[in-house]
Structure formats: C-alpha cells, structure tokens
C-alpha cells in the first residue's frame, strides 16, 4: 500500500493499487471506511463514559447503584448480547461460502437475541422509572440513562439493519454487494458487544462494588 506514495505522477501505479484492494476478501475500501466510522462512534461512547465517570457518585440524595441495579438481570442481558455476537460469528463462514439459507437463519437468531436484549433493557428502564429512579432524579441517573440508552438505541438500529439484510438476501441472494453489507453489519454488531463490556463493568459491576 505504500510503494506508490513517493511517485504520484504515475497514474498506472494508482490503478494497480486499486486492483490490489480486491485481492483478499477483507481488502475493501468500504470495510476500512466503516471501521473508521466505528472508531468515531467509539469516541461518542468515550465522551458518554467520561460524563458518567464524572457524575457517577452525584446521587443528589437519591438511590445509589447498589439499591437499584439488579445484577442477575444485567448478567442475563450480557449473556444475550454475547450469544448474539456468537450467532453472528456463526453466519460468517456460510457468508464466505455463499450459502444464503444458513446465513439468514443465523442472522435471524442474532436479531431475536438482540430483541431479547432490548426488551430486558426496556423492562429495566421502566422498572427504574416506576421506582422513582428516572433520569431526572440525579446526575448519576441522567448519565446512566444517556449512556445505556445510547447503547440500546444502537442495538435497535442494528436490529433494523438485520431485518433489512434478511429481506434483501431473500430478494437478491448473496451478491458481492450483499456480502459487503453483511460484513459491515457484523463489525457493527461486534462493536456494540465491545461497548457493552465497558457498560457492564464500569456502570453496573463497579457501581455495585464501590
């Protein structure tokens, strides 16, 4: 990728580089571009984590994490999201081999596990609000709902994306364009699981321990 940089005048070199990009299955400008997007998304979450870290003990006389966090429920949610990452990973060898039917089955399972995750999270949010621990109660809870809610919104978008992929694979089959989209979605989904590692450690577990 670097041998062309010292001589920009030779346009033929640029064509060769462009072709080189397709020599292996991951060598695709779209995938690298999507990775850069994910990194910028990580910075959004970094600022939300920083905000949460700063106000995580500003309880304003309201409930503290130990009183309101239900760790078995969080463990269930963590398991659901990790399982959905695994089922998505199971779709990838079939994607590489061009088998549309198993790709759709594994994607559908991933979507269902994602729906379970969002469902449990909405139940948790509703329970907190009904207990008087809503986002307006304290800075800690405002930051909690903003951080965890932003992650939940991402997962919801991922589920919509999965539904669109299921419909498009049914209509188009596994064309190169469809493979590229599913590979981007796979990166997106694994990325959300990585953000969740930060959430369950920093927000829930550390909140209960401190």
């Amino acid at each position: 990728m670097t041998d062309h940089a010292d001589d920009p005048g030779r346009s033929i070199t640029w064509h060769r580089v462009d072709e080189d990009g397709h020599d292996h299955e991951d060598g695709n400008a779209t995938l690298l571009g999507f990775w850069i997007y994910l990194m910028s998304d990580a910075l959004i979450f970094a600022s939300l984590f920083a905000m949460f870290g700063v106000v995580s003990t500003s309880y304003a006389g309201g409930p503290v994490p130990r009183e309101i966090f239900n760790l078995p429920l969080v463990a269930l949610n963590t398991g659901l999201l990790l399982a959905s990452s695994i089922t998505f990973g199971e779709a990838m060898p079939h994607l590489a081999a061009g088998r549309a039917a198993p790709v759709r089955v594994w994607l559908a399972m991933t979507g269902l596990l994602g729906a379970g995750f969002v469902g449990v999270e909405l139940y948790e949010f509703g329970h907190l609000v009904s207990e008087g621990a809503g986002p307006q109660r304290s800075a800690f809870l405002s930051a909690f709902f903003t951080l965890v809610g932003t992650h939940g919104a991402h997962v919801t978008v991922g589920m919509i994306w999965i539904a669109v992929m299921l419909a498009q694979i049914a209509r188009n089959g596994l064309t190169p364009a469809m493979r590229r989209r599913v590979m981007c979605l796979s990166m997106f989904w694994h990325f959300l699981d990585i953000i969740w590692i930060g959430v369950f450690t920093f927000v829930y577990l550390y909140g209960v321990v401190r």
Binding site: M1, T2, D26, G27, L31, L32, W35, I36, M39, A42, L43, A46, S47, F49, A50, M51, G53, V54
Partner: peptide, 26 residues
C-alpha cells in the same frame, strides 16, 4: 495485516483518545 495495518492503527489511535477522554475527565 488486515487492511495493511490501517485498522490496527485507527484502533490504537482511538484507544489513546478514549483513555485520554475518560481518564482525563475523571
């Protein structure tokens, strides 16, 4: 090796910014 090392470079750069943002703010 992935993408000629660019994904790793972008990831490491992001990791530095993430650590600075969270660690510095707290």
């Amino acid at each position: 090796r992935s993408e000629g090392g660019w994904t790793l470079l972008a990831f490491l750069f992001t990791a530095v910014i993430v650590v600075l943002t969270i660690g510095g703010s707290v």
